[in-house]
Amino acid sequence: MTELAESTRERAERLSIELSTDRNQQSNGKDGDPIRGFVFLDGIRASDDPAVIGNVGSRNAIRDLTLERGIIEEFVAEERSEGYEQGRIEFADGTSVSYEYEILAPQRIEYTIQGETYKTGGDW
């Protein structure tokens, strides 16, 4: 998929693979309908850059939470110090999820949403 622009690849969300047999290779030597199958992979990330994968992954995670729970009301920082923050994201429906944000270097950031860690920034 390297021929696709990064901006196209980064929007990929689902991979669909179609499998089918060749009708000339059936074991009984006769022609028959090909056997076809499909595999779907959800939540995929298409990039060779880990930072893009992390950035897109964290954004999609927030988007999915937003559709499920309503708009983000607030990021409540429960603990914050130089380069580290943890707290909860509160949504319109009254629920919240935990987050953690750790700046390892200016372009090397671990962003954890609901227990899943995304490598964000640009330098991994």
Partner: peptide, 13 residues
């Protein structure tokens, strides 16, 4: 949409 405003990202970010 990219969550780069003060209310849609961690304060540190």
């Amino acid at each position: 949409g990219l969550r780069i405003t003060p209310y849609y990202m961690p304060q540190s970010a």
